[in-house]
């Protein structure tokens, strides 16, 4: 079995895995980082979104071996102690989550989105969240949260 080594949330990790192990399963099963969720099997819903090399990808659509040597950040790696990342804080302030299942992927995607472009219109935010499906919120408060999170991130 191949050995994979990567840095996850700042910590070096390594493990022997079957080549067919998806990155998301490596995170969930091997590292017990269960904050990253699996909501579909066609790479549509985005619940599994993490950052690899600083960019948002769908961890259910990447093999763990493909991430060998990479820097990976998951939802567990965002907050500093009890201090939430501004985007997490914005989701809480604006009720941008209900059941919480799509939330980790949504937050990771939103951070990546606002990093790529600072000042986003509502339409740009909606288009930018195309790869993340939420069934609870109707997106209304997610859009508000991303707007606020973008402003707060800029202010940081």
């Amino acid at each position: 079995m191949p050995t994979v080594k990567m840095t996850v949330n700042g910590k070096p990790v390594s493990a022997e895995v079957e080549a067919r192990t998806l990155l998301v399963h490596f995170l969930r099963e091997h590292l017990d980082l269960t904050g990253t969720h699996v909501g579909c099997d066609t790479a549509q819903c985005g619940a599994c979104t993490v950052h690899v090399g600083g960019k948002a990808v769908k961890s259910c659509n990447m093999l763990a071996v493909q991430a060998d040597g990479a820097e990976v950040t998951t939802i567990e790696g965002l907050a500093t102690g009890d201090t939430l990342h501004p985007m997490q804080e914005a989701f809480r302030d604006h009720h941008g989550l209900q059941c919480g299942f799509c939330t980790p992927g949504m937050v990771m995607s939103a951070i990546d989105l606002v990093k790529r472009k600072a000042d986003l219109s509502e339409a740009e935010i909606r288009a930018g969240l195309e790869g993340n499906i939420c069934r609870c919120t109707g997106y209304h408060n997610i859009v508000k949260a991303v707007q606020a999170g973008a402003a707060a991130t800029r202010g940081r």
């Binding site: 979104t49 948002a56 990447m62 990546d112």
Partner: peptide, 9 residues
């Protein structure tokens, strides 16, 4: 093409 995450890979 696809969505932002897909376009990254």
């Amino acid at each position: 093409i696809g969505d932002r995450q897909v376009r990254t890979l």
